[in-house]
Each structure stands twice: as structure tokens, then as C-alpha cells.
Design a protein around this nucleic acid. Structure first.
Lengths: 351, 351
DNA sequence: CTGTTAGCGCTTTCAA
DNA sequence: TTGAAAGCGCTAACAG
């Protein structure tokens, strides 16, 4: 599968050229270069001759021609909302690693949280003939079904668990994590808490909201102490807007809980704008973690998603389908990890 | 170029199928579907007939077959040290955007700052027949030359200006920026400054070191006030190790200057380990910026690289080569921007 | 043990 | 105006 270029000097040859040069047929040559010499009982001297020639001149089997014939590309496509987002960047890196290890390449595409672009990205990738598709969908994937109909392309959803996905879905444990997180925040701050989130229509965010509500109920807080601030777009400016409004209306809360780092970023910005700095006694909860948060003096609890685990699971299910398995609406939950004060020596950095 | 699937129902047809079904030849069909009908004076009724059929059944030209024939893949490869690194993630996102807009796809690969893996990644991408290659090389690209010899694949280096690159190189203005940055740090802190860097062998880092030294000279500081701490690997743990050693030997400096966010991350960690928090009077300088740095109370100056500008320039030169231009060892410098205290309303977040 | 025969679906001459 | 033919380089089935 790998570039079989044992080549030494000059342009590496094609299979046909080797056949012509050695006087054997394509088939014979192919048997020896693909290691099927034994299996087909190629005569040792023949084999030696061909191997010698290849060692001397190099050989590289044309990937495009092979793909045309076999209808396989050894490529997998990835569609995420935004590659520059730390979570997706890490997920991408992990997937890329697994692709490389298995002789595949990863084609990346961004949807920018837009259904139309997502559809285009998927169409483009399928057109390219990717064998598999990993997608963090920005809406119910029902709409993507027609494009997949009749294809054997493997598919798996990540990060967002739309219930109608007719293929495996690999996600974090949003609701449970949110409940734990909110519970801890309330225990520490003991008072009013603002929830700042984006894209409540996303299943992941919906889960986080549900978890938050559950914790609030458990703490027997009334409405005036737990406020939900929601935006339609996951952007720092939106987070800032929400937080500004919250401050104006009710003053600074004792705690905030954000659904994403971008929201948190906006929250920080609004606080700095309003108070010149982030109030030191504010307790912060967020999804996803960033090492720099450790340098912020506030108490910060973060639910760190397990990008590696997510990639691992997604890739495994992709492979299973590519190996002939069926598309099944399986749900895989990869738990995150609640990071509180990092102890000394903790390696919170890049994995 | 785009997936010409105007398809409605059922599996979209191939060119040949359309030809067979309409009773015309491949050629004729191709002329009409590629919009060359006028040019070849296809009879209007013929055209209408074919267009009608296509509108009814859909048509998708097989990308693989086309690639085999034309020897073009409409794909560009990208090799970076680490996709999960914020700077490269943004660069990747910007490149991906430009690829998409021009009907191409981006294949990503990580070298993990390892020459061998880099070479493998390049070989793999070339094998795949990418039309262009963008690479942030982790060593002098001389070694990559043989693989490119005799190919018309377009190539561009980014971020790292090895002087022997026989193709365009697009980089930030490391030395000048470092000098400015160091000068400002000294002006603010007015005293001892520690330089914490990784991979001094990289041209970008070498430039930053040179800039730092120039500023130190200009400020007439002696050796005991300006110390260079260098590691071989750009990892937070290395940054922490260097900073720990620095603290042990000379106590906390008045200012630190880091060559990367990972180093800064390590510096923060070491400081927190040593003092329980980042000393508030420490002045920090760094390359690359992250919005969360705004939430750290310290005075922080960051040289924010212009990923978009870099991507733009790199892509332009790639296109130029793909359009038949020669590989030339051009050097393009895309200046960064020194970010000091963000003013109110500044959008430091994602672009 | 090795070779032949068909294509994969497209582009590209060259003819008619 | 339209069509036929010749591959791109490979795989896969079937003959010897």
C-alpha cells in the first residue's frame, strides 16, 4: 500500500515499464512486487531478476490508476465546523495520525457551522471518492442521507449526537459532565450562577443545558439565581455580548459556566471591559480546557474532552464499516475529565 | 470542475452512460456538459436533449478517472509539525479555505518536528499526486529535493526560512519583531530578562534570538541581566524545565520572552509551581497570541502572526507555479503585529 | 509458473 | 457538427 518506491536513481518506473524492461508480464511483476511471489510459486530466478531491476531503478505504483480500478482511494474525509478551533484541531490531529498509521490520508473541510457549506463539503469529499467520512454535523444529518444513499462510503458522526444519524455517533458525555460541573461550581461559589452558551440547537449544547438545569434543581436554586444566556453563534463576540447584558441586568454573578472556550473568551472580555480585569472571586466553569487557563488566578473548572478517545472510537467504527460492516446507528460515549486546580507537575499541555 | 451533479433521482450517471442513453457520443456529451456547446456549434436540439437527460438523471464526472488521464488531482498537500498547534491550525484553516474556493482539497500531514516523518509525509503526498505542496519544514529542505526532482509539483515553504529552499518561502518577520518586542519588554520592566526558547536550529527561532540580542545590545545590558534558555523541543514541559532552572539559579526575572506559546505555557507552569501563581509584576513577551492571555493579569506583549496573510501569500505562489510558473527561491515576509493591552472592544478572537 | 484479456471512466487527438 | 479510437496505469479473471 505504501509508496513502494525502493527507487534509487532516475525517475522510478511504473509496473508496465518494469514488465517491459525485464521481459515478463505485468502480472508476474505484480506478483513479485506485492509479495505474492511465494503464493504463486514464481520461479526464484525470475523473482530475483525482477527484484533486482526494481532495486536498481525503483518502482512506484500509480495511486490514481489503482484507485480508478479498485474504486478505493485510501482517503478519509473530515468535516468539522472550524479547523482553527482547538478542540477540532486536536481531533483532526488525532485522526490524521490514525490515517497515516494505516496508510491513508485525511482530507479536511470546514463547514463554518453552516448547513449549506457542510453539504457542499460532504459532496466534494464523496466526489473525491473518500472511503470514509467523519463529520461533526451542524444539523440533523438526515439531510446528508441522500448523498450517501447507494454508496458504500463509511460514515461516522462525532461530537454531536443527532438522534436520527443512521450511522455510528461518537460523543462526549455532555449532560452528565455538565451536571457534575455545575454542581461543583455551585458548591464552591454558593450563589448566583450565569450559564453562557452558544448554539442551543446542537445536541451537545442541549445536553450541557440539561445537565446545568439538573444541578440547579438539585441545589434547589430559584430562577433569579440561575440564568441562561444563549446565543445562536459560537463566537467570542457573542459571549461578550451575553455577558455584558448579564452584568448590566444583574451585576456580576458569583459563577459563570460556559459551553465553549469561545464563549468563555467573550465572557472574559466583557468582564475586563466592565471591571478592568476578571474579578478574582468569580468561579469559572467551562467545557474544553486550555493550558493558559491555569495562569488565570481564578478558580476554574474545566471539562476536558478526550479528543484522542473520540478519534480512536470514531476511527475504529469507520474501519469497521470499510471492512464491510454495516452502517449502524450506534452511540459511543467517551467521557471527559473534570480538571480542577492542576496539581504540581501535571502535564496539561499538548499530549 | 465542481461536482457536476445536477442529479435529481437515482444514482447519478457517468459521461459514458449519458452518451449511451442519449445515443450521442462521449465527445458530444462532454462538449455540452462542459459548456463548450457554443464553441463546437452543437446543434441546439442535440444540446437540449442531452441537457434534459442530465437534468433528469444527474451526472457526475468521475474524479479519479479524470485525474488518471490528466495527471492532475486538484489536491494540495500540507505538511506541518503539528496540526494541534494553534498557529498551524489557523494556517491550515486559512489554506483549506483557499483550496475550497478554488475547487481543490487539502490533504494534511504532520511531521511532529521529525525529519524522517516529514520525508515520509512528503513522499506520501507526492505519491497521491498532489498538484501542490505547502510545507513548514523542520530542517533544511535540501533533503526533500530529490523527491521533487523531475516533478512539476508546485512547492512552497512557510514559516521557516531555510536559505537553501529552491522554491518560494513565506515567513513572518521574526528578527525585527523580536527586536521590537524585546525592546518594549526592557523599557517596561527595566531590568533582568529571561529568554526562553525552543529549537534554536529553526530559522524562525534563530531570527528571534538574533532580534533579542540586538535589543539587549541596544539597551546596553550585560550578560547577567539577559539570559538565554534554550531547549531542543518545543514542548511545555521543556519550557517549564528551563524556567525552573532559571528560577533556581537567579530567582524570578523581571521579564520573560518566549519563542512560542508552548514555551510560555511551561514558563507559567514553573512559576505557579514555584510561587503558587504567576507573579503579577512579571512582564511577559511571546510569539503568537491567544485570547486567554488577555485574562491573565500580567502585562503581556505578544507578536501575533498573520496566519491569513501567510496563507494568502503561500497559496498565491503555489497557484503561480501550478499555472506553469517556475520554482523560484523567492522570499516573502508577512509582518506580524505586536499586541499590547487590548483596548476595549478589540476583537482579539477568531477572525 | 506465467501471460493474455478486459476493462475502470475519462481526455484527446484525429476523422468524417 | 459529431464520432471513433487510443490510451492513462493499474487490477482481476482466466488461460495456458
Amino acid at each position: 500500500m505504501a509508496p513502494e518506491t525502493t527507487g534509487r536513481k532516475g525517475a522510478p518506473k511504473t509496473l508496465d515499464q518494469v514488465a517491459a524492461a525485464t521481459g515478463y508480464s505485468r502480472t508476474t511483476v505484480r506478483f513479485v512486487v506485492t509479495g505474492q511471489a511465494e503464493k504463486h510459486r514464481i520461479r526464484p530466478e525470475t523473482r530475483a531478476l525482477i527484484e533486482d531491476y526494481v532495486a536498481r531503478h525503483g518502482l512506484v505504483v500509480d495511486h490514481t490508476a489503482r484507485a480508478l480500478k479498485t474504486r478505493r482511494s485510501d482517503a478519509v474525509g473530515l468535516v468539522v465546523p472550524d479547523l482553527a478551533n482547538a478542540f477540532f484541531a486536536r481531533l483532526t490531529a488525532e485522526l490524521e495520525e490514525r490515517c497515516r498509521a494505516s496508510g491513508r490520508v485525511l482530507l479536511t473541510a470546514s463547514s463554518h457551522e453552516d448547513a449549506e457549506r457542510e453539504a457542499q463539503a460532504v459532496a466534494g469529499l464523496l466526489w473525491r471518492g473518500v472511503d470514509g467520512l467523519v463529520i461533526a454535523p451542524c444539523r440533523a444529518p438526515e439531510a446528508l442521507r441522500p448523498a450517501l444513499r447507494g454508496r458504500r462510503t463509511a460514515v461516522v458522526s462525532v461530537d454531536r449526537a443527532y438522534s436520527d444519524a443512521p450511522w455510528p455517533t461518537v460523543v462526549g458525555d455532555n449532560e452528565a459532565a455538565a451536571e457534575t460541573l455545575a454542581g461543583r461550581l455551585l458548591a464552591i461559589a454558593g450563589g448566583s450562577i450565569a450559564f453562557v452558551g452558544a448554539c442551543p440547537a446542537l445536541p451537545s449544547v442541549a445536553g450541557r443545558i440539561a445537565g446545568f438545569r439538573a444541578a440547579a434543581r438539585a441545589a434547589a436554586l430559584d430562577r433569579s439565581e440561575t440564568r441562561l444566556h444563549l446565543a445562536e453563534r459560537d463566537e467570542a463576540s457573542e459571549g461578550a455580548r451575553l455577558m455584558r447584558a448579564a452584568i448590566t441586568a444583574h451585576g456580576a454573578p458569583k459563577a459563570v459556566m460556559c459551553t465553549s472556550l469561545l464563549m468563555l473568551e467573550g465572557v472574559f472580555r466583557a468582564l475586563i471591559d466592565a471591571f478592568g480585569r476578571v474579578p478574582e472571586d468569580l468561579v469559572v466553569g467551562t467545557f474544553d480546557h486550555h493550558p493558559f487557563l491555569d495562569a488565570v488566578p481564578n478558580r476554574i473548572l474545566a471539562v476536558r474532552q478526550d479528543e484522542r478517545g473520540l478519534a480512536e472510537a470514531a476511527f475504529a467504527h469507520l474501519i469497521a464499516q470499510m471492512d464491510g460492516g454495516p452502517r449502524e446507528p450506534i452511540r459511543v460515549v467517551v467521557p471527559g475529565r473534570l480538571v480542577d486546580r492542576p496539581g504540581p507537575g501535571v502535564t496539561a499541555g499538548s499530549p
